[in-house]
Design a protein around this nucleic acid. Structure first.
Lengths: 137, 137
DNA sequence: TATTGTTATACTCTATAACTATA
DNA sequence: TATAGTTATAGAGTATAACAATA
């Protein structure tokens, strides 16, 4: 059931994001940039639990789409200070609205205390899994 | 949270199955064979939502491990009647015990009515996802 | 010496199409 | 013509290692 529900939710989100020309992985990066401001690729990977080569690929796509730019970090010329473009900011907001619509459809039928309970249950499941061997990336 | 809980559960199950030399995908086939008796590859794929080429690969592995055999179906010589070996039956039972142990650890701390509620919640989420575009395989 | 990011590479998983042998 | 299974292949996604630039 966990697998089925997860798959249904991810598929529904991808479907909702399709008109924006992006997928779940781009949504995560856009949302993180919108929330945190200029961010290095390393930090993006740490926040989203992505391999650094995966971040390269996603950033290549976001730059090609004109949604984010790689500026050099002022204090460390190895690293980037990645920023959203205006278009990227619009996409970030639109995709958050899309995600909200998916959430409303999948979870809106639950009473508020049931939604809270669901999160608590899922968190508890994770906490009861072995701590040291979650899929290493 | 759905993604995290799913990932934690799958990883925990794989870890528990490792001593048996199998992974989640083999567990699904073993359990299905134990429950349904002789089964064609097509039916296995339908029951487990696997592509037919994926079933070929998993069956190659199960045969190499000596856990299942491909007998020809008596009534249709195109198809197989796949059966568990004695060793396969033992592995099926052992893996179901392993899965039970994982379930007990991840879900055992929940009161019985909470477990029931969780299943109901997850089922409801799936039912509220768009019906026609779940990840097609 | 260590770290950021890039590239090349490899491995797994999944999906598709072409094929065979049967039906 | 259609179906069960096989094979080859291609495409995602992910991981690793070697590398250049910088710290």
């Amino acid at each position: 059931m966990l697998a089925t529900a997860h798959d249904a939710a991810r598929t529904a989100l991808n479907l909702e994001l399709r008109p924006l020309g992006i997928e779940t992985r781009h949504f995560g990066v856009l949302a993180t940039l919108a929330r945190n401001g200029p961010t290095s690729q390393r930090r993006l990977g740490a926040l989203l639990d992505l391999d650094k080569s995966a971040v390269v690929r996603i950033m290549d796509e976001l730059e090609r789409l004109g949604l984010a730019v790689r500026n050099r970090a002022a204090h460390d010329r190895r690293a980037y200070a990645i920023e959203l473009t205006d278009e990227g900011r619009r996409h970030a907001h639109a995709s958050q609205r899309a995600a909200g619509a998916v959430g409303a459809r999948l979870f809106g039928w639950l009473a508020p205390d049931e939604r809270t309970r669901l999160v608590t249950l899922l968190t508890g499941i994770v906490d009861h899994a072995p701590g040291d061997d979650r899929a290493p990336r």
